Simulated assay, not measured.
Amino acid sequence: MMDEALKQELRKQGIVATTLQELYNWGRRNSLWPLNFGLACCAIEMIATTMARYDLARFGAEVFRPSPRQADLMIVAGTITKKMAPQVVRLYNQMPEPKYVIAMGACAISGGPFKQGYNVLKGIDRYIPVDIYIPGCPPRPEALIDGFMALQRKIEGQTITGEGRPDFMKDEPSCDFVVPEFAAHDLLPTSNQGVWEAPQLVNITTAEKPGTVKA
């Protein structure tokens, strides 16, 4: 590994020294192509982020693709109903590797104000992996830009060798995520256990306190 001070000195002389990993991550970080779709009101903020005032194109995300086969970033912007959830998973499965997901807004993260509704999915991370969570209802364009920059930093820090390399660079073939189907009362499966598993809830009124002795 070359010393950083030496790199800076070489740059002053017009010589750029880098590694294959840095060059590879630099290209991926600055050429993210988001999928051109929105689900609810958060999509209005996402659209505003691409307009002249905020200009997401400055960060390398100028091309919003209408086809999932040409996109590598899914911004889940808005409420995911159970009717829409299978379609979102299908779109994610059609995206080529490497691909990333930003959950934008409280609804995409946990269901938001509709969490107790029978028809709303309580977080898209039940079915697909999420890289960046952006809270808010709805988040402003500045929040989406901040989340986008956080994703760029994550990509920049990825290694292309070793145990810490991304899943798409491992020898095991990647498999599609389970697309839920409609059953009598809910989606089946209700969640993708490989991505998300519901925590075990404990009733504190009936749970035994440590140190107590049964009669």
Rank of each mutant, 00 (worst) to 15 (best):
L6H: 04
M2V: 14
R58E: 11
D176Q: 10
L39N: 10
D176H: 02
A17D: 08
G162S: 05
G78Y: 03
A48I: 08
A215R: 10
A215E: 12
E9F: 01
L121Y: 01
L187A: 03
I128R: 00
W26T: 02
D72R: 01
I128E: 06
F37H: 09
K214V: 09
Q193L: 06
Q87N: 09
P68V: 07
A143E: 02
D3F: 00
A5K: 01
Q200L: 13
G157I: 02
V120W: 01
P139Y: 00
G117R: 07
Y92M: 02
R28N: 08
Q21F: 00
Q158M: 15
L32N: 11
L10H: 01
P66E: 10
K82V: 11
F177L: 03
T206D: 04
K12Q: 15
H185S: 15
D3H: 14
F59L: 14
T81A: 03
V179E: 15
M2H: 13
R140I: 02
R53Y: 09
V120I: 15
A207F: 01
G14D: 13
T19W: 09
G60P: 10
P166Q: 10
A150N: 11
L56T: 14
E9L: 07
I109H: 06
V76K: 04
G162E: 12
Q70P: 02
D72W: 01
G27A: 12
C42K: 06
I47T: 14
K214Q: 13
L201V: 13
G123I: 04
